[in-house]
């Protein structure tokens, strides 16, 4: 690692006052620590968000579930409120990485990083969640802006994310060594219809599969996902070529919609 200074503030305001170019935030560190160790980042100051109490925890407010940015994947996976109100989100969080990753990794860290193969972006986009920051509230549709790119300013800190309570399900085919999605589909039904978000597959990161949503809104029993166009260019790498990834998306969509139907029945 390159040398850096370290500070562990206890309030969001202190962190906000410090953050900026080369003064980087440390959340769960499950991506950033390996990045630092490989000398792919050279911050001057590391601002550890782990001791800011207001960033932790899960509560219900105004019919929505609010999850603090520093809430760990293991907490989301085992939380009674999330399991009963947003079941697909709990099962998704319980499948990220491995237990040690889930003990440290956080919702906010995952969203701010916006890895194209991460699970959380699919859930947040499909559920039309709202990302609340130290400056403003950002709707999911405006938050994700391509590979490792979000609407966040350099000095903006995610405080919490609010989700609707709706039936939902998530399924991924994972890259076995990392647990990241080769293709993952999060499906839910909101007031204005079905929504399917796909991660791990699109070259520009997480996206909504609009043809699948339209087909389901037209006929809720629709199941022929293999016949539908999948417009974004697919990621191609050593693990899977574009055709294989497209097929995984279609198979995952079929299975996850079947799970969603069980909840809706």
């Amino acid at each position: 690692m390159y040398e850096f200074d370290y500070v562990r503030p206890t309030t969001l305001q202190e962190a906000q006052d410090l953050v900026g170019e080369d003064k980087k935030l440390l959340a769960g560190g499950q991506t950033y620590m390996p990045t630092l160790r490989q000398r792919l980042a050279m911050p001057e100051l590391l601002i550890d968000l782990n001791a800011i109490p207001v960033l932790h925890g899960i509560c219900e407010a105004d019919d929505r579930i609010s999850i603090g940015a520093m809430t760990r994947h293991a907490e989301v996976a085992s939380d009674g409120l999330v399991r009963s109100k947003i079941p697909g989100l709990a099962s998704m969080a319980g499948g990220i990485g491995d237990p040690a990753v889930r003990h440290r990794g956080t919702l906010g860290g995952s969203l701010a990083n916006n890895d194209p193969s991460a699970c959380y972006p699919a859930a947040v986009l499909a559920l039309n969640a709202v990302v609340h920051t130290s400056k403003r509230s950002i709707e999911a549709k405006d938050f994700f802006q391509g590979l490792f790119t979000t609407a966040l300013d350099e000095d903006e800190i995610i405080s919490h994310v609010t989700f609707p309570s709706v039936p939902c399900a998530y399924l991924k085919f994972k890259q076995p060594a990392s647990g990241f999605a080769l293709a993952g589909v999060f499906a839910c039904k909101l007031d204005d219809g079905f929504r399917l978000a796909v991660t791990g597959a699109g070259q520009e990161g997480v996206f909504r599969w609009q043809q699948a949503e339209a087909a389901l809104n037209n006929d809720a029993s629709f199941g022929d996902f293999k016949s539908l166009a999948l417009e974004p260019d697919m990621i191609e790498d050593v693990h899977a070529d574009a055709d294989y990834r497209s097929n995984l998306v279609r198979v995952a969509a079929g299975r996850v919609v079947a799970q969603l139907r069980e909840q809706l029945a």
Binding site: Y6, R8, G29, Q30, M33, P34, R37, L46, D48, N50, A74, P99, A100, V101, H103, R104
Partner: peptide, 19 residues
Amino acid sequence: CMVLVNGDAVKSCTLLAVQ
């Protein structure tokens, strides 16, 4: 490198001692 931190198994290569 797993150790228990406050009762949870974590990878000690992915945490700073100062934390």
